[in-house]
């Protein structure tokens, strides 16, 4: 009797949490497959005819999807690299600091804890296309980097400049915190012995710091990449995908297909394809970094 109870125990403890995952993640995953194979009519009591793979084959010739995929990739590439480099740089600076570590750590981390909606609206306002937009004013009238105010948010490229800047600005602190922790876990005696051998700062970084950071770089880049692929709020708040859908991202396209055009079937097919791409990419990326060590190890 006691044995049986002992056996049942873990299941009983798993069950309540599992129910949540089952209802809100597992079932929806199965139901997404079903929806994606139909011409889903969202009106109740209306037929939802089987469509086979037509939703999927439509993706191939959907230029808007490919454009949004390209946009998403560019955004991910730019912001992930930007966050990693600047985050690492700030972490290295702070790590070598004697006074004010806590202060700077907090300041750089501030954007990370601020709501996406708030910072997106803030950047929309800062990048306002008129001469009285704050960024225009700074670049034009204070630093004289440009002669004329830029219409940031009415052109695709400059809109992305604004959205990318936001993505990097908000994420530096996150990368910085993690690199800082990784830097502090590198044993000091490694440096000391190398210094005795006459290694300069750059050599120390190249031969000790960087190799020690590789697992962290791998995990951070995967996390940032997954985050970058999900970016929706900045696009929704700042450009709404415009002009002419040129700043559309895959997730915003998925969302609008479902909730503006009410085409749930096609939107679900897009989601499946996109989730597979993201999943495959993050696997590949981990492999490229030489193994899942960083994940498994502490």
């Amino acid at each position: 009797m006691k044995q049986l109870k002992e056996k049942k125990f873990p299941y009983l403890f798993i069950l309540p949490g599992f129910l949540f995952l089952f209802v809100w993640l597992i079932l929806p995953m199965l139901s997404a497959l079903n929806i994606s194979l139909r011409n889903w009519n969202i009106m109740p009591n209306m037929p939802k005819p089987w469509a086979g793979l037509t939703n999927y084959s439509q993706i191939l010739s959907d230029s808007l999807f490919w454009l949004s995929l390209k946009n998403t990739f560019v955004y991910a590439l730019v912001t992930v690299i930007g966050q990693m480099i600047l985050g690492l740089l700030v972490a290295l600076l702070i790590d070598n600091l004697i006074f004010g570590k806590v202060f700077f750590r907090a300041v750089y981390y501030l954007p990370v804890v601020t709501s996406w909606v708030v910072v997106s609206l803030l950047f929309k306002f800062l990048f306002n296309s008129s001469p009285s937009g704050f960024i225009n004013y700074l670049l034009c009238n204070v630093f004289h980097i440009i002669d004329q105010p830029v219409s940031w948010l009415t052109e695709a490229n400059t809109s992305f400049a604004a959205i990318d800047t936001l993505g990097i600005w908000k994420g530096i602190g996150f990368a910085m915190i993690i690199f800082l922790a990784a830097l502090q876990s590198i044993p000091q005696d490694l440096y000391e012995s190398a210094e005795i051998d006459g290694g300069g700062t750059i050599a120390l970084f190249r031969y000790i710091t960087l190799p020690a950071l590789v697992p962290t770089i791998a995990t951070v880049s995967v996390m940032l990449l997954i985050g970058a692929f999900q970016t929706y709020v900045p696009v929704a708040m700042i450009t709404k995908g415009g002009p002419l859908h040129r700043t559309e991202m895959v997730v915003s396209y998925i969302y609008n297909t479902a909730f503006t055009n009410l085409n749930f079937g096609y939107s679900s097919a897009l989601s499946y394809v996109f989730a597979l791409i993201v999943f495959g990419l993050s696997r590949l990326q981990l492999r490229a970094f030489g193994g899942q060590k960083g994940i498994a190890e502490k």
Binding site: N128, S129, S130, S132, S151, L153, T154, G242, P243
Partner: peptide
């Protein structure tokens, strides 16, 4: 005004 392009004052 350039607002007609989608952004500005």
């Amino acid at each position: 005004s350039p607002l007609i392009m989608g952004d500005g004052v």
